[in-house]
Amino acid sequence: MIPITTLQKTAEQLMAKAAIEIPEDYLGGLRACADTEKGDLSAFVIQAMLENYEAAKEDRRAMCGDTGVPRWYVKIGNEARSEGGPIALEAALRRATANATHNVPLRPNRVHPLWRTDHNNNCGIGAPEIEYAFHPDADWIDLTTVHKGGLFGSDYRMLFPGDGIEGIKRFYLDTLIAFGRRGLACQPAIVGVGLGGSKDICMVLGKQAACLRTVGSRNPDPKIAALEAELKDIGNTIGMGAMGFMGSSMVVDCHIEVGYCHTGGMPMSVHMFCLSSRRATARIHADGRVEFRTDPLWFTDYMRRATVEWETPQRVAAE
């Protein structure tokens, strides 16, 4: 039984880590941009960001003043049991969000859409979002927090099979160019593309592709992996760098996730995870042990399964 205090304490630590420490994979990707960027202004911006990450870590302060909209991804092992059940878990995540907003501090970004009421704690109706997934043959709970910027860089469009791969590339370019100007998307970014699913799931897949996969990871379908690499290159040949200044640093990486969709359509979403690609994960084991990491390991073979039944692959003999 995982104690609820362990879950809440871990969640508070994750909130601080996400806000303060840039994940190594994104940092590596940005350094690669810095090495090739020829535009003076764009290169200056990237250099300032690299210094900013250092300042954030040294001072233990949030890397960006707009600390985004904190949200949670929870993956629960099929055999995991937590004290108080899922209701207590949700309460712990909401409490951790409120406490961390005061203690880190984070910007209290969350307000009522109409009345603009601000509880000054990033909690409210539907906030923070908590998404759930499950994992077979496991007794741990994975908590991931993502603090994604909330205003620019995402779009959705219903494409059709006749639009083809060219239509996908065109909508991808549309989104990057529209939000890349003046750097509204805070690029260089991890671009997530959702293809298929129903409309809401299309948006969810794209957002998860941007926020829950690490720079350098590839979709297991080799043709999709090739499209990811191609889209990354296309984004970096627009001629637009950091802040929309002339340059080549637009896309740190591109990730595509797919879901089965209506036979007549090919819905597509695009999301951009910014220069402050804030994510942090912890695995809380059944014995209360906690391991922190920056790779959410969200997309697994189980998550991407296409079959009716799921059979856990045979473990190798050595294990």
Partner: peptide, 9 residues
């Protein structure tokens, strides 16, 4: 700059 230099600022 970059829009993310919050710690430096």
């Amino acid at each position: 700059v970059g829009y993310g230099t919050g710690a430096l600022l």
